[in-house]
């Protein structure tokens, strides 16, 4: 499986570290109630098909990417940097 790193180019998935579901919504830092954190930490949609997920290019630029990928075909549709640099596209 290859993932196109916006910084380094097309690279093998072995260069990346999978960081999991990018759709889980992290509560704001100040949130004190356990329940929204339980949802964030434990609950997953786990779709068969298109999925947004975090991958870190650990053996490259170390940037975190949000990758849109099909979990059944392993087809990678796009990868963008997380945060402000990834928003422009």
């Amino acid at each position: 499986m290859l993932i196109p790193c916006p910084v380094c180019g097309m690279r093998d998935a072995g260069e990346y570290h999978y960081r999991g579901d990018a759709t889980a919504e992290r509560p704001p830092l100040a949130e004190e109630a356990a329940e929204p954190w339980v949802r964030y930490v434990y609950e997953r949609q786990n779709p068969r098909g298109e999925h947004l997920e975090f991958w870190q290019h650990v053996h490259g630029c170390r940037q975190f990417l949000v990758v849109r990928r099909n979990t059944e075909t392993h087809e990678v549709f796009e990868a963008r940097l997380v945060g402000p640099f990834g928003q422009g596209e």
Binding site: R19, R26, F54, V58, Q63, F64, V82, G83, P84
Partner: peptide
């Protein structure tokens, strides 16, 4: 290191 990098990049940019 990865934990910190993730928080900075994805949570508190």
């Amino acid at each position: 290191m990865m934990h910190m990098e993730f928080l900075l990049a994805a949570v508190w940019p």
